[in-house]
Amino acid sequence: MPKARLIDTSKCTACRGCQVACKQWNELPAEETKQLGTYENPPHLSGNTWIKVEFRERPGEWLFRAHTCMHCVDASCEKVCPTGAISHQGEVVLIDQKQCIGCGYCVLACPYNVPHRDEITGTARKCTFCIDRIGNGLEPACAKTCPPGAIKFGERADLIAMAEQRVQTLISDYGYPNANVYGADELGGLHTIYVLTERPSALGLPETPEVATSTVLAQWLSGVVTAGVLAALPFWLLFKRKKQIEAEQKSKVEGGVR
């Protein structure tokens, strides 16, 4: 039975334990950020930030939603990946860092703006669902750490049932007429399911996400990249990738705090 993660926005207090716990387990460095007039930081997901809480203010409300990889069944990133670096490992959509050439197709294709290319590694990176943890009987770091229990990990079917029940309660008892479950059916079914207190668009999610295909992506790119560049790109990136791996190994030897 597939596992999934349930993020209940009605319970999230935006303590952002998930952001740090993810970095702690996955050994991701801090980003340099600025105070831009919001509690939200870093400004977006990146090669080193795989989950982040988005803050939205409305009159009398402060909405929080942890944003991370949805681990879609119909995963656009997987479909457009030219090297086969992105694959499903069970329910988990994983980018194999050794195969990734950093072409950035997945970055453009993802309807949720999840994968990001990392400048240091030259590869696309994103949430791995803590595959090493969940494959060994542990919860993903984000779900494990969540103090109010807004992020839960478990059997997907159970979580969807729990989410549906929670939405009913939110509508009937808490005055959230727009509460809804997100992810049960989208893109063939997501493995990050949400309980949303508002319509998806009010919380930064596409109401009807679409699967990108290579064709779709080629159409997107046609306006900006010539076919010739497109054809040459992977080879150039493979070469660059090799140099970057060498540089990365060198920096590891030199050490430094994360």
């Binding site: 303590c15 952002r16 334990g17 952001q19 740090v20 716990a21 702690q24 494990k144 750490t145 969540c146 103090p147 229990g149």
Partner: peptide, 9 residues
């Protein structure tokens, strides 16, 4: 088992 952003760091 949980931790906020201070405990997690």
């Amino acid at each position: 088992g949980t931790a906020c952003s201070k405990g997690a760091s």
